[in-house]
């Protein structure tokens, strides 16, 4: 790891001023420090955000949804009484995310901004497409954990457990930079790397996530998160499914279905959600929706099983909303 300077400002304004070229924001560090150790990030300076008090905490205001500060530790999200009561899908998504230590260190903002775990990308000795190279080595290489859908030049998968759950909750992220603030749907925050866009997030240089907002309407849905892993803990999702729906009189409406681990971005297909509108989320409806989600899947040599798994996890997640 090369040398860098460090600052821990106490105010957001100060932090934004410090964030210029060659500077990277540090929160929990669970991803950034590993990227730096493998030469995948080489900042001149780190701006440690953890001294900024205003960016931490979960607030629930009747009628105004939920606000989660970007610096809130994942373990605090997991244990939040407000969330467990009003939006259990979010704490549920973190239950099997990484480890207790990483959830203590990691923050909401950092989780949403974590980079992919592709083993070619993470290997500093491999110059893959995403790092400016000519090709994606996974396409004809070792691809059991890679994307089955939605990939262009790069077959990474979105690794976050939190992101699908938040997208299924219609979350928006508030971003700040020294130039101002903006708010975008979390779903639009992720980009599948392609063309000139060799990155996974729509964040701009000098910008920070300050807050995640969940609208009141999303709290009326029932939601669940299921995750398939290779071992029983401490694995990234092979496939994960966040599902949410308004359920009344045995009928579902306003369905959200977001998959992790199968595409370069959290994978949401609105057409599949519409298939489920007005159904009782019976097996047939669920599998029909799964087929719409996976219609364009083009598995690689070793990851066809992900399609089988995704189909079944979609069915299970949706079915459980009725129980």
């Amino acid at each position: 790891m090369s040398l860098f300077a460090y600052a821990r400002p106490k105010a957001l304004g100060e932090a934004l001023k410090l964030l210029k070229n060659g500077t990277i924001a540090l929160a929990g560090g669970t991803d950034l420090i590993t990227l730096m150790r493998h030469g995948l990030a080489e900042p001149d300076a780190l701006v440690d955000l953890t001294g900024i008090e205003g960016l931490r905490g979960i607030t629930r205001e009747k009628g105004r949804g939920i606000r989660i500060g970007a610096l809130t530790a994942l373990s605090d999200v997991e244990a939040s009484a407000d969330l467990l009561r009003s939006l259990p899908i979010v704490p549920e998504s973190l239950r099997d995310a990484a480890t207790p230590q990483i959830r203590n260190m990691g923050t909401v903002g950092g989780n949403l901004l974590q980079r992919n775990r592709c083993w070619y990308f993470r290997d500093e000795g491999v110059q893959c497409w995403l790092k400016g190279g000519k090709r994606c080595f996974a396409v004809d290489g070792e691809n059991r954990y890679h994307a089955v859908i939605g990939a262009h030049e790069c077959w990474i998968v979105s690794p976050s457990d939190l992101a699908p759950a938040l997208i299924a909750s219609d979350a928006e992220v508030e971003l700040a930079s020294s130039l101002g603030r903006r708010r975008i749907p979390l779903a639009g925050f992720y980009v599948a790397p392609s063309g000139k866009q060799r990155k996974e997030h729509a964040i701009r240089r000098g910008e920070l996530i300050t807050t995640v907002r969940i609208p009141e309407k999303a709290l009326e849905r029932k939601g669940t998160y299921v995750k398939a892993m290779e071992r029983k803990a401490w694995s990234f999702a092979i496939v994960s499914v966040a599902a949410a729906a308004r359920v009344r009189d045995g009928k579902a409406s306003d369905v959200r279905l977001v998959l992790g681990g199968i595409a370069p971005i959290p994978w949401r297909v609105p057409a599949a959600e519409r298939v489920l509108d007005g159904t009782s989320l019976d097996d047939n409806a669920c599998l029909a929706a799964a087929d719409v989600v996976l219609k364009d899947a083009t598995p690689l040599r070793d990851n066809g099983y992900k399609v089988t798994l995704a189909r079944e996890l979609v069915r299970r997640a949706l079915r459980s909303l009725m129980s």
Binding site: L26, G29, T30, I33, T34, S75, I102
Partner: peptide, 29 residues
């Protein structure tokens, strides 16, 4: 492992277990 994959470096910071390999000393001030 020096990359947060094993837990052997676990210490407590403000009572919570964390990986000291992924924590900068300066950030623990």
């Amino acid at each position: 492992c020096d990359e947060g994959d094993c837990g052997a470096c676990t210490v407590l910071i403000d009572d919570r277990p964390v990986y000291s390999c992924l924590t900068l000393a300066i950030a623990a001030e």
